[in-house]
Write a protein that binds this DNA or RNA. Sequence first.
DNA 1: GACACCCCGGTAAGCGCTTACCGCTTTCCG
DNA 2: CGGAAAGCGGTAAGCGCTTACCGGGGTGTC
Lengths: 403, 403
Amino acid sequence: MDADTTVNADSTARPAAPTQAGPAGAVTAAPRPAGPAAAITAAAPGALAVSQPPTIYDVARAAGVSIASVSRVLNGRRNPRPETRDRVLQAVAELGFVPDGAARALSVRLKEVAGVIIRLPWTSRNPEDLFADEEDSLQFPDMINRGVAEAAQRKGFDILVRSVDLDEHDPGGRTLALARKSDGLLVHDRVLDPDQLEWLGRQVPVVTLAAVATPLTVNVRSDNAAGMRDLARHLLHDHGYRTISYIGGHIDSPDSIARFEALAAEVAEAGATLLDRSCWQGDYTAGGGARVINSLLDRGTDLPRAIVCANDQTAIGVLYALERHGVRVPGDVAVTGFDDIPVARHLQTQLTTVRQRIRELGATAFEVLYSMINRETPATRDVVLPTTLIRRRSCGCEGGDPS
Amino acid sequence: MDADTTVNADSTARPAAPTQAGPAGAVTAAPRPAGPAAAITAAAPGALAVSQPPTIYDVARAAGVSIASVSRVLNGRRNPRPETRDRVLQAVAELGFVPDGAARALSVRLKEVAGVIIRLPWTSRNPEDLFADEEDSLQFPDMINRGVAEAAQRKGFDILVRSVDLDEHDPGGRTLALARKSDGLLVHDRVLDPDQLEWLGRQVPVVTLAAVATPLTVNVRSDNAAGMRDLARHLLHDHGYRTISYIGGHIDSPDSIARFEALAAEVAEAGATLLDRSCWQGDYTAGGGARVINSLLDRGTDLPRAIVCANDQTAIGVLYALERHGVRVPGDVAVTGFDDIPVARHLQTQLTTVRQRIRELGATAFEVLYSMINRETPATRDVVLPTTLIRRRSCGCEGGDPS
DNA sequence: GACACCCCGGTAAGCGCTTACCGCTTTCCG
DNA sequence: CGGAAAGCGGTAAGCGCTTACCGGGGTGTC
């Protein structure tokens, strides 16, 4: 439609109408300008124009007091005389007054908004993607956000979620912009590099998720090492698998690295074999997992007895690829994930995985951010949450969820 | 340590950090109210305290111009002299300045934030709920929000999502509060009643989703009638089913009503039988769908040849309940949904349903809201988007998705 | 009864930014 | 070369709200 991209171009019509305020008690809000006959006909043209919301001045006038009193009543300061309070409260109710967020924020220097930066999951999708629907289910970051939102709501905060494209020229800039609309930032993994984080951290409180803490930021993550250790032992000792391979997430992902190391340690200790890692590089997506399997099978490589994936998404891709090639899971090859995202239990072959307390991760991250916003000094820079091994079919265990 | 919680108390160390910048403009921001600073030492305990972000005054000082010039350069007004522009731009870059959202919002009266009110899906969950995982997948409202977010981002807007509990004492109040943090509201179905909407609409631009337009609000929805008509015809004519029943959503849901009416019309026209509606009342949830089936079967009632559900969630519950009772789908009974939410195609028995262009619904809603915020008068108060019939297994068609 | 306090309302000073308006330079013509 | 018209930068007035500070009246106390 309107093709002009010049965002500010228009001189935004704003018919300096504030004068309309009118007499004192004018509570009646004289609805629309419309004439009598105009009625409520759905077709009517300009009827949608909204009248400006009342300001604290309107309330003060209606209550016959000063704006300071209104503010005091509303914020419970210096308890006002009952009569004053009542007058104000009534005026507030009549006018339906609620203080403007921006004005309040500017004044108290607190916006009560937390910014959340997430790696864009939903734009610029590739329509031909085999796993297009993988973006249709709630993923790890989405679940975290729910936790964040819950915790935020408890403190009266709202969250502003912004997804940034990784190959964006200036993630820092857009990010900072979000920062200035909020009191602090919650940054998901892999959207900003350490330098940018460091820099951001200097300007606003920042909490990262599943990353690493920097001197100025706090990080919240799950206990990858312990989780993977449990999983590895289950595979090695309970099932007795002797050859295992690991499909990593992004090569520089702290989570993926930690998981790999824990796995490697266990495999070594059990005297089993961990296949060469190089050709087993995934990218946390189902597509990536499938790709790895496909290329290996096409090349005729032998598969290990168990494939440990960096996350559930990858495992989903792996399962799919294996099935297409006629490889049975868990009969021929066992497959495991990590995260325990919702779909993990809806798959044909229910996925054995390591559950992270995802929502709690988010909630905790918010709590930490909140305390930072209040200038408290967090006890730790690296908050670690426990994990749980979830045994389902894909590793060779019987049945599905106990539930 | 510096345990004072008094937010402003400290005279905010404001380490003239930018000094690193070196010679050049050397004015190096002798920022505000002087401040002996606690350096940037990393390890230190209180090190997490962030220094306040630079203000436009800092930039002006650093560039040796007035704040007006800074603002003009940044907003591209009245093109400033190249030299001025450069000085400002450099200062901005050095200080990493980004205008404060609240201040800007207050000044231009535009927050660039759209509020989204959704019926709470994730709090106060009932842990014993049979279908607990139904909240774990992306549902209709979530998908809509993605569409909204996409469209919003294109206009430089962010979205503030707030979930309200239906049985909350004062949804209007919390809602209005959100409204004052944003420029307009996008209200999902069934969170506010018409009166509240009407009232809200008087204060801020409001767009509802899948509801009905009021004189002051615009509504965006899918073409329920057409979608259901296609589905009904498929069931009646392609499959030849002669007895059908409809499990509604909430009894007063406009969507559910519209779907029912379209179905009833088709059934009547085909001379088939539509079972009595009364004992077939669902509530848009899987639990509700299952409950209906269970109570009917327990009572020994005969089932119709096809069960048409108001939405996919309901259908999922129905499928589950039927399976538990040993009723085969689609063999004994055909079941259909509406919406085509992601899980619909992951079910054991893939669900035949009517696809709504969910994201587009959201995107459109935002576009409309955006135009209202800009005081444009929308062409219609009732925006309708097309639907598509998706034939999968559950209605008796062969195979699953073509894909 | 006078003075010291308290209480509680009002006044006004910002919060950080945009922009109308003013006035000094430059530039352009006649 | 003078005067009008631009061009540009600065000053200041808000945007709507919170809160420090001030002052008037009511109490309490010798």
